[in-house]
Design a binder for these strands. Structure first.
Length: 480
RNA sequence: GGUUCCAUCGGCUAACGGUUAGGCCACAAGGUUUUCAUCCUUGUAAUCGGGGUUCGAUUCCCCGUGGGAUCACCA
């Protein structure tokens, strides 16, 4: 049974890299008809942000990544929140100490700083070894009686090597004497991530450990722990990082986009998922559009890349347009309704407007900019009438606009077709290029260089009276 | 600095040791068009450097260079 997990710490911020880790873990589980679980790594009480578990729940839910087991969905392997598992960790740390694979350290912060400093001067190429590692039984007892709290460190073998295999990076071997003796249990009685993840992954029967690349160098130490307990070592899948354009890591402080930020910018969850799935992975074909269900079928961890990828919005934006176009119109309108300017739907046929913008939207936040001219023509410069290809300039535009006004006046049934043929009528009569009429009319009606739809489509939507008013205003503007 | 990982167009990436090194985004040009939107076509653009191994290296090995990760009572 394949079992994977996503184990975020509740910091209140779901960045793209985290989400991708969750996605890959989810895909690996689902692809193998396995289980995907959510575990909350809240062993750092200082860092835990209130309500941030909600951010995790809602992000996963919006992304469509559902878990089979989690804090609010017991699957028999709980609790799924690490701060509720203290007794489990305590039991295992005792076991490790009695096996001699871990030891208590009584050093204070100050002692540690000093000792580390001294140690690095004497042995610049060796990892720090704490003096408490060689305490005898009676010394430990004396310290225990004297000092209330202590931490527990992992004891690393002096010699030998440790090898582990990662599905992405292959076999990696390190000398044990380059590994540091990390803290497993903190003075507050909670385990560090380094200890908790091993205990929990084993107890929760995680078969494939999917996590960020930053844990790769700790993996040998985890292996040593598994070996001490005599536990089966899981498959490792370490993921390369997602970087920003300047090569730095994505960070909340620098204001880099989180999942939530991207949603706020008008990106669809399905597009974001599609995009991040391909940051570091590809199906081996030239397909680029994937739904979450497609990914479950196509995804394979063997095809994950080893190098870091840079996150840019260009391709995400392009992909978002593809996803928008694939949305059924009804669904599109429902989502778009959150973005239309106020009053737009009460004044005009919102369905016609929706059809016009559906195919030409990159993000939903563009809706306002693309539709606000329906309500009010913006203050524009008459240079917009200048277009060589369309044989239009302010002077000819004024003439054409003056001529089209009476023609439009005779149109009785007002719609896209009749308006268009009315303009065609004038074009025929004048024997001019169609752009000479179409261009200025569109500018006059919209005040914009680029609009969703052409002149007659806009005229149709805003109606005969409004069209006449706008044309008249434009002529006046051009007369100045 | 120790350990370790990575390295193909500007970005994401493809290529049993044999390809004119392919695709997508972005960019540029042209075309279609009721818009400078959409759509279509074309183009610019890459194997980090140096040594090997090999008939042949983007691919395998070594060295260098560059970048990343890690070395917390954070995860």
């Amino acid at each position: 049974m394949v079992r994977t997990r996503f184990a975020p710490s509740p910091t209140g911020y779901m960045h793209i890299g985290n989400l991708r880790t969750a996605l890959y873990a989810y895909l690996i589980a689902k692809k193998n008809n396995g289980k995907f679980l959510l575990r909350i790594e809240d062993t750092d009480q200082k860092r835990t942000v209130e309500d941030s578990v909600e951010v995790i729940y809602s992000s996963l839910s919006l992304a469509g990544i559902s878990y089979d087991e989690g804090p609010d969905k017991d699957g028999g392997y709980g609790p799924y929140i690490q701060s509720e598992r203290r007794d489990i960790y305590r039991k295992h740390i005792e076991e490790l100490i009695s096996m001699g694979k871990a030891y208590r350290c009584f050093c204070t912060k100050e002692e540690l700083d000093r000792d580390r400093d001294e140690f690095s001067k004497r042995y610049p190429d060796k990892p720090f070894r704490d003096k408490c590692r060689d305490l005898t039984g009676s010394e430990i007892k004396a310290k225990t009686d004297q000092i209330a709290s202590c931490v527990v460190r992992q004891r690393i073998p002096e010699t030998g090597t440790t090898t582990f295999t990662d599905i992405v990076f292959g076999a990696i071997t390190v000398e044990n004497n380059t590994l540091d003796e990390q803290v497993l249990m903190k003075a507050d009685g909670l385990p560090t991530y380094n200890f908790a993840n091993v205990i929990d992954d084993h107890l929760m029967e995680i078969s494939h450990v999917v996590r960020g690349y930053e844990y790769l160098s700790s993996a040998p130490k985890y292996n040593l722990l598994y070996e001490s307990f005599g536990w089966k070592i899981p498959e490792y899948i370490h993921l390369p990082h997602i970087m920003r354009e300047d090569g730095k890591k994505l960070s909340k402080r620098e204001g880099d986009a989180s999942f939530q930020d991207l949603l706020d910018l008008g990106y669809l969850p399905s597009a974001i998922i599609n995009y991040i799935a391909m940051l570091g992975w590809n199906p081996g074909t030239e397909e680029e559009y994937f739904t979450l269900d497609d990914l479950i079928v196509k995804f394979s961890p063997e095809r994950i890349n080893r190098s870091n990828a840079i996150f840019t919005r260009d391709k995400l934006t392009w992909l978002n347009n593809i996803h928008i176009k694939k949305m059924p119109f009804e669904e599109f309108q429902k989502k778009a309704s959150e973005y239309y300017p106020k009053d737009l739907s009460s004044r005009y046929d919102i369905e016609k407007i929706g059809k016009l913008i559906h195919e030409r939207l990159e993000t939903f936040v563009q809706i306002k900019d693309k539709t606000d001219f329906f309500l009010k023509v913006p203050d524009y410069d008459i240079s917009l009438y200048e277009n060589k290809k369309m044989k239009s300039d302010p002077a000819t535009a004024k003439i054409m606009l003056e001529k089209i006004i009476p023609v439009f006046d005779t149109v009785t049934e007002w719609n896209n077709e009749t308006v268009f043929s009315a303009m065609n009528e004038l074009i025929q009569k004048e024997g001019c290029k169609s752009g000479a009429v179409l261009w200025p009319v569109r500018i006059a009606l919209s005040g914009k260089l680029s609009t969703p739809g052409g002149a007659s489509e806009i005229a149709d939507i805003i109606g005969k009276a409004e069209t006449a008013a706008r044309l008249k205003a434009a002529v006046e503007k051009l007369g100045e």
